[in-house]
Amino acid sequence: MSTAHFTYEEVGATREQGHCPPGFHPLRVRTRIGEGREVFRRASEAVMTWEMHRALGVGIEASADRAAPGTDVTVTLAGVVRAPCRVVWTAEEPRLAGWAYGTLPGHPECGEEAFLVDRTGDGTVWLTVTAFSRAAKWYTRAAGPFTRAFQHTYAHRCGTTLRRLCADIPQP
């Protein structure tokens, strides 16, 4: 684990669904993945082990094979943009699994993003991506609304990719 400090004060705030600290842009994208215990198990494992992100075509360098608080993660986009982060919290419960990471110095954004798989009472499995962020580099400030549009597209692609990874599991 690096000794770098987070680039924002509200570390862990994505645990509170719907909370967005002042001065940040909120994001919430929820995607239906499928139904049943096996879909939940498969989706949870894909999220917790970085498989979903790698299947998206995103470069992931992580200090552990599985998400855990304190794990350093560097996300690489298009082989050019490097975004250092650290996992701030995880959840592994019978109907909820996922994690959030926060930005470290050098990340083009400042804030936090969470990836949560949940299985509702009717057995439906969902991926919810929540985040709060603001520009941290000149090029993300210059891109303005295009940066936020990219974040929404990325969150939707996470759901589409996870649904594809779980497509071979029989539905109840």
Rank of each mutant, 00 (worst) to 15 (best):
G144T: 07
P145C: 11
G34S: 00
V11T: 08
G121D: 14
A55C: 08
F115S: 04
H25K: 04
V58F: 08
T14K: 09
V75W: 13
A43D: 02
E92M: 12
H107W: 12
E35M: 12
A114Y: 02
R157S: 14
L56M: 12
A55F: 03
A100Q: 04
E93T: 05
C85G: 09
A131M: 00
Y139C: 07
W89F: 09
G59K: 09
V75K: 08
R157D: 12
W138G: 06
H156Y: 04
A68V: 07
L165I: 00
W99Y: 15
A55N: 06
G12P: 00
A83N: 14
V11L: 13
W50H: 04
F6G: 05
V11A: 11
R30V: 00
R163F: 02
V47P: 06
A83L: 14
G111W: 02
V58H: 13
I169Y: 03
T124M: 03
S2G: 05
T74W: 12
V80Y: 07
C158Q: 12
M52N: 14
R54F: 02
F132D: 03
W99H: 15
H152Y: 14
T130P: 00
T140F: 06
Q17S: 14
A149W: 14
A135Q: 02
R95E: 15
K137S: 13
V125Q: 06
T128V: 07
T14D: 13
S133K: 08
E45R: 04
T124P: 06
A13V: 10
A155E: 12
G57E: 11
P105W: 02
